[in-house]
Design a protein around this nucleic acid. Structure first.
Lengths: 134, 134
DNA sequence: ACCAAAGTTGACGTTAACGTCAACTAGCAC
DNA sequence: GTGCTAGTTGACGTTAACGTCAACTTTGGT
């Protein structure tokens, strides 16, 4: 009943603007495990979402291993008390790290704001000098 | 008059918890250019600040080249109209990129929040089951 | 049946960011 | 002066994340 929308490897490559080599590499690394129809890989919506997560992780500056860690959190794994507690601690840890990363980026942004201010100040001086000369 | 506080290479290494090899590598790459007393490197406050910037960039997920780009923005370079305009455009560009990076991290954080929610839900079920059995 | 396009598996190459010796030197402690 | 500790350069090793062939198979179109 469920219309199982699938993708070929080059469909995914186009969707996310990566090479097929990259996608195969991610599979090697265990970040993706598409179905097979004979030799050919067949990707479904879940694979599509996973790849999106991986690339978002990359843009955020994470390594593939770190991205895999996050992806793995999305999948149940086990559902007993200890495993859930462990997962929760992992989630907390990763969130804390991501938040401190945001803080670092904020400081870089603040620094650039100061650069911009000084830059504008210098520009004003120049235009003042020009209008005086005119 | 100005007490010129300086650092040896291992002072810096200790301060920022990196190896001396790393610091020499950054110099090779043009990210640092300490003074010399004979063979030995002598770092000043500016070098100290630069290294701090580099490492903040790293934690933010930037490459060394990207960090150098930002560091270079802090140093005057030229002060004529065109150069200042160019610098401003560079600043804008980098700020935009850093902000979109924050956005990516935010989405990762949101995703982890959902994982946490589901996780807590599963834990409630377990504790409910336990208390029923008791 | 046949060809071109798309897909597959190796295998080797490459760049970034250091790690890891090795061999040498300079300054201080005794 | 002799040994010890920091420091220096140079060269090669390593890991991550792919790029780049090469050689082969599979598949849709005519």
């Amino acid at each position: 009943m469920a219309e199982q929308h699938t993708y070929t490897i080059s469909d995914l490559a186009r969707d996310f603007d990566v090479t097929t080599r990259t996608i195969r590499f991610y599979e090697e690394k265990g970040l993706l495990s598409p179905a097979r129809k004979g030799q050919h890989r067949i990707f479904d919506k879940a694979d599509h979402a996973r790849l999106e997560l991986i690339l978002r992780g990359k843009r955020a500056g994470l390594s593939l291993d770190e991205s895999r860690e996050i992806i793995d959190m999305y999948e149940p794994g086990g559902d007993n008390y200890e495993q859930l507690q462990f997962l929760l601690s992992k989630v907390d840890e990763r969130q804390a790290q991501l938040e401190s990363q945001i803080e670092d980026i904020r400081q870089l942004l603040t620094g650039l704001d100061e650069v911009r201010a000084r830059c504008n100040g210098a520009l004003k001086k120049i235009s003042a000098g020009n209008s005086a000369k005119t």
